[in-house]
């Protein structure tokens, strides 16, 4: 296996009226070709900013990006915007969270689908039309020919997300970012979309990065999971290993707070008290310490580094779960 996307010490800062906001604080991530990885975290954990920065999509004048991004052997972080743009579609593509607003409301589905085929792959109108019908069939849209003439407002959320997927895979990208692809959808449609993504990934031999706040979504659909908290990766492991052997108290708390269909009716859900630390004023120690039920004095003063356990299990915690160290529960 070879590396398809490698992030080294990626940092993203925004200048705001309240000062420098460090949204991503030194992320190292190596994604192997052909795998699928889930990036999990709460709102504000930096997961979306990280994936957009990795694609070179954050270019505002108030954004500072540091670190090295290597995509498919090319150093993306040194490339000009024009060159990065040339990687979109054929190299990497993204599916956005909100299928309601990600499509252009005044253009027909057909024209939005054919745009990248014509520009990126230089297809003729006729070829692009034939290929878009193929793509719509691939994402299991009934009556694909009629679909080409429709506008986004005529479609349901699930259908629009299928269109987004069809556009994203139209030029056979090597790497597909899916940023909360099912959060705006019903559970039944969510199940269908996840199944479709997993199927397409295997069929087209794509690498997939699935960004979500729901650990339940990554469980059945990824090979690896990276958990993000306050702009950092706090735990990373193969999916089965992570679920069997959580080391970070945050991951455990996130896992326990999922409303589980197997729990007793009427039972009280465990919650994570408090909220993420203020990104313009990060605490010196572990970012999770104030909310952690196992936190000790050291956690508030010293920032933990990413440790490596067996099986490539990474964690960022002074007192990982399952360790023999005696913990006092505060």
């Amino acid at each position: 296996m070879s590396s398809i996307l490698k992030l080294e010490n990626l940092k993203v800062r925004f200048s705001t009226h309240r000062g420098q906001l460090e949204a991503v604080r030194g992320v190292d991530l190596d994604i192997q070709a052909g795998t699928s990885i889930g990036i999990v975290g709460e709102s504000g954990s930096g997961k979306t900013v990280m994936s957009r920065a990795a694609m070179g999509l954050l270019t505002g004048s108030n954004v500072t990006r540091e670190g090295r991004i290597t995509f498919d052997g090319k150093v993306l972080s040194d490339m000009s915007r024009e060159d990065v743009r040339n990687e979109f579609g054929t190299g990497m593509a993204m599916i956005f969270q909100d299928p309601m607003t990600a499509l252009n409301p005044v253009r027909r589905i057909g024209s939005q689908l054919q745009e990248s085929l014509r520009i990126r792959l230089g297809m003729s109108r006729k070829e692009a039309r034939a290929r878009s019908i193929e793509l719509l069939t691939l994402v299991r849209i009934p009556e694909p020919k009629q679909m080409l003439r429709k506008f986004p407002s005529q479609l349901s959320g699930g259908m629009r997300q299928r269109i987004m997927i069809a556009i994203a895979i139209s030029c056979n990208p090597k790497l597909l970012f899916a940023d909360e692809p099912t959060t705006a959808l019903d559970v039944t449609v969510q199940a269908q979309i996840l199944e479709l993504l997993t199927d397409l990934r295997q069929r087209l031999n794509m690498t997939m990065v699935l960004v979500t706040h729901d650990l339940g979504v990554v469980a059945g659909n990824t090979d690896y999971v990276a958990v993000m908290y306050a702009g950092e990766i706090v735990e990373q492991a193969p999916t089965t290993e992570l679920f069997a052997n959580m080391k970070m108290p945050y991951t455990e708390a996130l896992f326990k707070s999922i409303p589980n269909i197997q729990m007793k009716a009427g039972s009280r859900l465990p919650v994570i008290e408090g909220r993420l630390p203020d990104p313009t004023d990060r605490p010196p120690g572990c970012g999770f310490a104030a909310r952690c039920s196992y936190a000790q004095d050291k956690c508030f003063t010293d920032h933990p580094e990413l440790e490596v356990a067996k099986d490539g299990h990474l964690y960022r915690c002074w007192f990982p779960l399952g360790d023999s160290i005696q913990r006092k529960v505060s």
């Binding site: 559970v187 039944t188 969510q190 199940a191 996840l194 339940g216 469980a219 059945g220 679920f243 269909i261």
Partner: peptide
């Protein structure tokens, strides 16, 4: 039954 089985299960070893 379909609605219940559509809920993602947070367990990678779970066979749907």
């Amino acid at each position: 039954a379909a609605l219940i089985s559509s809920v993602p299960v947070p367990d990678p070893t779970h066979k749907s």
